[in-house]
Amino acid sequence: MADYSTTQTPEAIEKKGFRRTLDDWYEKFNKFLIKIKFDKWKGWVYLAPCIILLLIFTGWPILNTLRMAFLEGYDTMLELGGEPFQFGIGNFTKVIQYRGFKDCLVNTMLLCVLTVPISTFLALLISVCLNAIGPLSRTLQTIYFLPYVTNSIAIGMVFAAMFNMVGTAFGGENELIVTAGIINNVIEFFGGTKINWINEGSSYWANIFVMVVYIVWNALPFKILILLGGLQSVNKQYYDAAKIDATPKWRVFTRITVPLLSPMIAYVVITGFIGGFKEYSSIVGIFGDDMGPTGDPRRLNTMVGFNYRFIAEEQGRASAAALILFAIIFVVTMINLYVSKKKTHF
């Protein structure tokens, strides 16, 4: 049985007294809040952690990047040493003249221009087919989503293993190949000759091909998800009308499906370009931190990779490069928006 007498110990009474003072304080606090009209600005209190963090890690970087980019030869260490910098556009000209820069730009553009249309078209085709079938559709949909839930570096290593040749002196006289890699095995099975995809002495276009395959494979899930979602919300009446008119399938696709899906297609293309210009970790996944086959490091370097190389030392150039990247993404997005406004039907 509970011993009720204990509730009357001096300790408990004291606690009650403590409670009372706490309540008093709470009341006083509430009055204080009313007095200072807390309701009018309490939103700022709720937002305080968010705003403080954003000011430090988003607001300041924006201003500081502009500042660093326009100070000639800016370097944090020198600045801490008290060295003054002059205002100018030297960082930009240096970045553009840098011999690696053009390659990075070309690589990035090339990967964008190749992967975005291919992955969008494939995703559209797959979505339309998925939408046309009944059984198995959900299972297939789940399978197609799998590449999304992966670590792009980890699976990049799997792709590298699939394309990797083990041996020495590829293409030379003393060529010794231990394994050619599963992709080459498949090619040889169908009567082709093996290709040096990513190893020492491989050609640039073989590298690009591997990257395109990997990036498209990686980009499909998101695009299928969006396009299929769009297809499922399309009004069935359009298709019924087309059936009554006995419209050929291809025309139904180009005249009904694509126009009705155009907002989703535009969305997928725009996000694809933005992601494409920031391509980095998929290349690290396949080629490692060197971003190129052995013997030719940085061959596949991209804009983002270019940027990261300067971060530790020459922040002025890194900032200029980041601003150039931002400008490119901005312009491409604007062009995309402009085109899609003209072409989309909403």
Partner: peptide
């Protein structure tokens, strides 16, 4: 107005922040 400003920052690629954040 604040919300508009926040949304506008979404357009900027994260790579641009990395340099200063590294310093910070």
């Amino acid at each position: 107005a604040l919300f508009g400003v926040l949304l506008a920052t979404m357009m900027i690629p994260g790579e641009l922040f990395t340099i200063t954040n590294y310093q910070t």
